[in-house]
Design a binder for these strands. Structure first.
Lengths: 208, 208
DNA sequence: TGTACATCAGTGAACGCGCGTTCACTGATGTAC
DNA sequence: TGTACATCAGTGAACGCGCGTTCACTGATGTAC
């Protein structure tokens, strides 16, 4: 891993896993400067390699950015999964708390890494080579299934629930990370308020 | 107005209102290519003027983009105000319908002009010279005041209502315009679903 | 009422650099026989 | 078990262009007297 992350020095002529090293370097740049700050030449230099070497692994910049954005989304999804894992139990109350934890983790991750968050959802003219793993959307839907299964959420709302839930976390994250509008105050208050609002919007009542 | 919008030809040596012409041209470019597609040289050419002429009116590109973004936000706010104006009456039901119309107009405008919407909220390293007029945030708050005044929304939720409402429209617009996540289906269904969800989240019951 | 002069708003040409991308090349690695 | 050769993954140098920005300039406009 130190070969991949250190970058500047390299023992062998061949790198080992240049693709991964470029993505790792891209993640670091994106973290500081956002998606526009991803410059292929810098990533190559950071990996201890000449710019054109990148073209052995990615057809063009767009595909490299797509891979970096995917890595960012997977970090977000990991944060959500970890948050869900901290909640024990399998009743309706646990399901509701798990659901809230996922949403809170989403927004908190976005606030903590605003430029990486922007990178995760930046529009790119290229497809990632594989599906996201883990996938945030899947994690959300598992939590919603659990809410229905435990009777904490009405079945009638199941169909539109993903969009409503996603709208709220995505919207709040956008508000708190971007210069969207004059939304002041403590982010944690906003998160708590949003969690309660989602419970009302989805009619989640965790009567065990 | 034809001098401002046509661009290519100009009778007098002096332009008339180059600043406005540059912003108008910027709005057109942004509409097609988004905030990144705003290039100063093109806007100048479109206004029938040499690139450096722009520097008589804006200190640098950032300030020009800020003015264009503001113009985009004001268009959005106008769409919201117009939607509100179509709803007659002053009871709780009317207030609720007006509120829903505002949110619907926001999302619909964003869907109709996705790149202009992105431009409206693009981060810029410059302040616009004046406040937005009309201002979307103000329009929202007027509608919320009306909901409270008519008793359609509980006073306790008034404080957090702007953030919740804004989160939902901003979030849904982001979902439907960006390549955010696998949210398929009819946008109008999503808007209707969101409107209902906001009513539940803000406990709006329009018992006249 | 006309002239002098400051001021404002354009022109023209060029700078410079960031950055993706190409291309012919060379070093390392693995596989056939 | 060693040698020949294809293949893969790097190197080095350069191209080229999009685009903001600068600078000395000049034409038009308005105001003082």
């Amino acid at each position: 891993m130190d070969i991949l992350s250190s970058g500047s020095s390299r023992s062998s002529y061949h790198h080992g896993d240049l693709a991964a090293a470029l993505v790792a370097a891209g993640l670091r740049r994106a973290r500081e400067r956002g998606p526009e700050g991803i410059v292929l030449r810098e990533l190559a230099a950071s990996a201890g390699v000449v710019p054109s070497a990148a073209y052995r692994h990615f057809p063009d910049r767009a595909h490299l950015v797509a891979a970096i954005a995917q890595a960012a989304r997977e970090r977000l999804a990991n944060a959500m999964a970890e948050a869900a894992a901290t909640v024990e139990g399998d009743g309706g109350t646990a399901a509701a708390r798990r659901f809230g934890a996922i949403g809170g983790a989403y927004v908190r991750w976005a606030i903590g890494e605003p430029r990486l968050y922007a990178t995760a959802f930046t529009p790119v003219d290229a497809m990632p080579p594989r599906p996201d793993e883990p996938n945030a959307w899947t994690i959300l839907n598992v939590a919603l299934d659990e809410l229905v299964a435990t009777g904490a959420m009405p079945t009638e709302l199941r169909a539109e629930a993903p969009m409503i839930a996603w709208t709220m976390v995505h919207g709040l994250a956008g508000l708190l990370t971007g210069a969207a509008m004059p939304v002041a105050g403590d982010p944690d208050d906003a998160i708590v308020g949003m969690q309660a609002a989602v419970l009302r919007a989805l009619e989640i009542h965790a009567a065990e």
